[in-house]
């Protein structure tokens, strides 16, 4: 029997796919191409000469390697300290009742409710008096502020979504409060908390305004270095090479995220 059913062409889907490709993938392809280009002059559609010349030039610079180390150390330190401060706080917000709880909870939004640069300049003024300008720990402090929102709000949602009955069942079979937290609450909230940690690591790694305002010129992170490259020498390839370099950590982070976090927990983290 002849098949009378034709698969209908989904034009809306095709249009969406094309638009998404143009908006998301195209710029990435352009930057990726520039990074491996030696010569690319108007009006050629593809580069005249591919090559790794600018990679050698970029990676030969000592300041690039210093900034990579600085960026990784900073992001790890900030995320670590943020977890130490925020996770117990998140647990308290989720599970305990204390005066001013709601106001305190919403105050973490305040850092994101104003134009950030104004806030940073004000903090920089204070840091100047405390001799924190141009120091590693000064940058750590300023970047900590940026992570608070993620590291409080998402884990609070994670802890709140853990079924209290599960914890009670653990108490019932003989686990003390600490054991319950370790064996039940944390594993239940774990994937969502991992998402928050990941977001704050990546967020810190790419943070530029605070790092530049507080750290420059002594402490230079990779994104800050990239900005100065682009400002000082308008050679597109330098920026492109650094962009590709900057993709690496977030790419690794996302691969890790795919293993640890399933979409359900991510959604739960955002109260979904």
């Amino acid at each position: 029997m002849a098949t009378l059913v034709h698969r209908k062409t989904d034009w809306t889907g095709i249009v969406l796919a094309v638009v998404l490709t143009l908006v998301i993938v195209f710029p990435l392809i352009v930057v990726g191409t520039w990074a491996f280009t030696n010569v690319w002059r108007y009006p050629s559609v593809i580069p005249q000469e591919f090559g790794l010349r600018f990679w050698y030039q970029t990676l030969a610079r000592a300041d690039v390697w210093t900034s990579i180390t600085t960026s990784l150390t900073l992001a790890t330190t900030v995320t670590g300290i943020s977890a130490l401060i925020c996770l117990p706080a998140a647990y308290a917000f989720a599970r305990m009742d204390f005066p001013g709880r709601d106001i305190l909870f919403f105050s973490f939004l305040a850092g994101h409710a104003f134009p950030k640069f104004g806030l940073l300049v004000a903090i920089a003024g204070i840091f100047l008096q405390l001799n924190l300008i141009g120091t590693f720990w000064g940058v750590v402090l300023i970047q900590l502020v940026g992570t608070l929102l993620f590291m409080i709000w998402i884990p609070v949602a994670a802890f709140q979504s853990v079924d209290r009955r599960m914890e009670e069942a653990a108490r019932d079979v003989g686990a003390g409060p600490f054991r319950v937290f370790w064996s039940i609450t944390l594993p239940q909230a774990g994937p969502t908390i991992a998402a928050a940690v990941l977001l704050s690591f990546v967020g810190t790694f790419y943070e530029t305004e605070g790092a530049w305002l507080i750290g420059a010129p002594q402490v230079r992170t990779l994104p800050v270095l990239m900005i100065s490259f682009i400002n000082n020498q308008p050679v597109i390839q330098y920026g492109a090479v650094l962009s590709v370099l900057l993709w690496v950590p977030s790419f690794i982070a996302l691969m890790f995220a795919r293993r640890v976090v399933n979409s359900g927990s991510f959604a739960r983290g955002f109260g979904g």
Binding site: D163, E168, A169, A170, R171, D172, G174, G176
Partner: peptide, 19 residues
């Protein structure tokens, strides 16, 4: 406290540990 009682509870929601 519950962890020291000789009782065993079965909850309405089962409360099994999903991990």
């Amino acid at each position: 406290p519950p962890e020291k009682r000789p009782t065993g509870m079965v909850f309405q929601s089962h409360a099994l540990w999903t991990h």
